[in-house]
Amino acid sequence: MSTAPEDTNNNKDSADSLLADIRKKITEAFDIFDHESNKTVDVREVGTIIRSLSCCPSEAELHDMLAEIEEEEPTGYIRFEKFEPMMTKVLMERRYKPSPEDQILKAFQVLDTDNKGYLTAEELTKYMTEEGEPFTLEEMEEMMSAAIDPDKKTVLYKDYASAMAVEET
């Protein structure tokens, strides 16, 4: 007796279910920013939508994604019918996965040359705006509002790394 056909059906059913879940998440995330309910979003919101789906592309990767889905004559808007297939593929391939907590923690430890267990707001601002892919002022303010310990006025990066880590679903 062979159970191969049944196994194949179970695998197909779970793949179909996964695909349906992914498409539902994409639709829900897109709809939040579709303010006019016309299946379009402002191109400036696409990065936020993608990141809300637990994808963490670099700015360069985000620009490549936008180039793939933008109209030939850019309108400033992205249509759902172009966004959904691209984003489905990205999520199915598990591209741009967020870093796990231990990697985030190691990155902060590299910046903490004195092994204090924290970074000052000034240190973090310097690193995040002057090195690598610099944060914008808006991104920096958003990060600081979440990262700074209000009592100590420092970034206790072990706690912050835990908060930044995205659990695999």
Rank of each mutant, 00 (worst) to 15 (best):
V46G: 01
D34N: 08
T154E: 13
L66C: 07
D42E: 14
R44C: 11
T136I: 01
Y118L: 06
E131T: 11
K126M: 12
G76N: 12
I50F: 04
I69T: 10
L105K: 07
G76F: 06
N9H: 11
A20I: 01
P74F: 01
N11D: 13
S52K: 02
V110N: 07
V110E: 10
I26S: 04
S2I: 08
T88N: 07
L62Y: 03
Y96E: 04
F83N: 03
P134K: 06
R79A: 11
I78Y: 03
V155H: 03
A20H: 09
E167P: 05
N9F: 13
A161L: 05
E81Q: 13
A29Y: 04
K153G: 03
T120S: 11
V41C: 10
N115K: 12
C56Y: 10
E123F: 01
I69W: 02
N11Y: 10
E84C: 11
L19R: 15
T113N: 08
E168K: 15
L156K: 08
D21W: 10
A146K: 12
P5G: 05
S2F: 10
V155D: 04
D112I: 01
D149W: 05
M128Y: 01
E167Q: 14
S58C: 11
E142D: 12
E130H: 10
E71R: 11
D159M: 08
F135R: 03
R95Q: 14
G47Y: 02
M87K: 06
P100N: 13
K152M: 12
V46W: 01
M128K: 00
M92N: 07
E28Y: 11
M1E: 11
C56M: 14
K89C: 01
K152G: 00
E71P: 03
R51G: 04
A67V: 08
K39I: 02
N11V: 09
E70P: 03
G117F: 04
F30P: 00
C55P: 00
L53R: 00
I148D: 01
I104D: 02
E61D: 06
K153V: 06
E168I: 14
D31Y: 06
D102V: 12
Y127T: 01
Y96A: 05
M140R: 06
D42T: 10
K158A: 06
S162W: 07
A60P: 05
C56T: 14
E141P: 00
K116S: 08
G47F: 01
K97F: 00
D31K: 09
T3I: 13
E130L: 09
G76R: 09
K39A: 09
D42L: 11
P85Q: 05
Y160S: 06
L19P: 05
E139P: 08
A161W: 02
L124I: 06
S58R: 09
G76T: 09
E93H: 10
R23N: 15
E122V: 03
V110S: 10
F80Y: 15
E167V: 13
S145H: 09
T3K: 11
M143W: 02
A15P: 02
E70G: 09
E59T: 07
